[in-house]
Design a binder for these strands. Sequence first.
DNA 1: GTTCGACGATAACATTTGTTATCAAATGCA
DNA 2: TGCATTTGATAACAAATGTTATCGTCGAAC
Lengths: 203, 203
Amino acid sequence: MQSKAFCNNFTNAPMFEHLKNKFPIEDQKWERYINCFNKLEVPSKTVLLNEGEISERIFFIEKGCVRCWFNRDGKDLTLQFFLEGGMVASIESFRKKIPSPVTIETIEPSVLWYVDKKDMDSILTELIEIPEIREKFIDILFERTFDYMKHFVSFIKDSPEQRYQNILKEKPQLIQRIPQHYIASYLGITSVHLSRIKNKMLK
Amino acid sequence: MQSKAFCNNFTNAPMFEHLKNKFPIEDQKWERYINCFNKLEVPSKTVLLNEGEISERIFFIEKGCVRCWFNRDGKDLTLQFFLEGGMVASIESFRKKIPSPVTIETIEPSVLWYVDKKDMDSILTELIEIPEIREKFIDILFERTFDYMKHFVSFIKDSPEQRYQNILKEKPQLIQRIPQHYIASYLGITSVHLSRIKNKMLK
DNA sequence: GTTCGACGATAACATTTGTTATCAAATGCA
DNA sequence: TGCATTTGATAACAAATGTTATCGTCGAAC
């Protein structure tokens, strides 16, 4: 009884509307899967995974913002941001059970749902047999890879100023919501230099 | 008759020993697949795919060395090198039938085998149904992604000098075989700067 | 053998970017 | 409200890296 109420509660969350649209799977299966999702409401600066730990959970973001970063000689280097609708884990650590190269941390008060690795593995094992879903997963994998490549290529072909303008054009929500020193770290420059760039762009 | 001789000829190539070890598939299937491979012997500086073209072939390297690069304001930016045993295509272009962001070019006289996209697609469609092979493909996909991430992370966390030393340690064959200005372009610096780095390291 | 082009080293100078320090404004919290 | 912390701007100086030009060597093509 309690489990059923639990389940209905989850089913109504916006997160699942989003997922159900993305993965059209029979309702019956969804009910089973939804029991593997755990809600987490956390304040800003909550660490979801520490650099060096092994990733045991994958997080789905219903509300808020998450940052992946690592430490290098005391400096804070940002690899990625995730917003509403995003799915985040240290995928290398999650897949290969090796220590995570990155820390995953909220930068806004956030509403998250997580799935434990063992649950996620069994869901995936089941779903991968369905050709349409399999195709979708492979697509997602490719898209992730292409995204990394794109970000990487932008590092070697564009100046920091151009990279900033790319973000302004393609992901303006990031500029609006994320503190500037994190943006600078994401662009691979110091916050002082980003200040200079913004100043120069005004003139 | 001719087709059979052709096939036997191919079967003996070192390339296929390598592939057969990597993908243990029944001999019968291999015979069919091997007919889709076409041998290509080319001199240095042969363009296999031009920036802007749509990738229609995937190349397997039996002997030689291949470079992926693109042009930015007349400058030559290198993304990757491939040596013997490597498999190269503009994967984004190959998968999505979009113009390739990179040029693919030999930098040594090379012996290659290529497979046309339509053949590769049908081979993959067949093989993806075999769970072990499917797992292997997904592994390969992940590994590619992790490689890109690693290379990318090294760009944001290491100095050019450290990146050069990483290559010296991890891929010394590249330093030995590849002209220095291509190495510089791969490291994201000018050849002048790489000269300075080497000079500094001597002292 | 001669010539031409590719490759690599080096120097002088220019530009970009980082470092450190200081201050002002905004924000969260008691 | 008021204080502490975070965030962002700016200046002065230092270090890293690019640009351009010159020169020497080596190997391939004629």
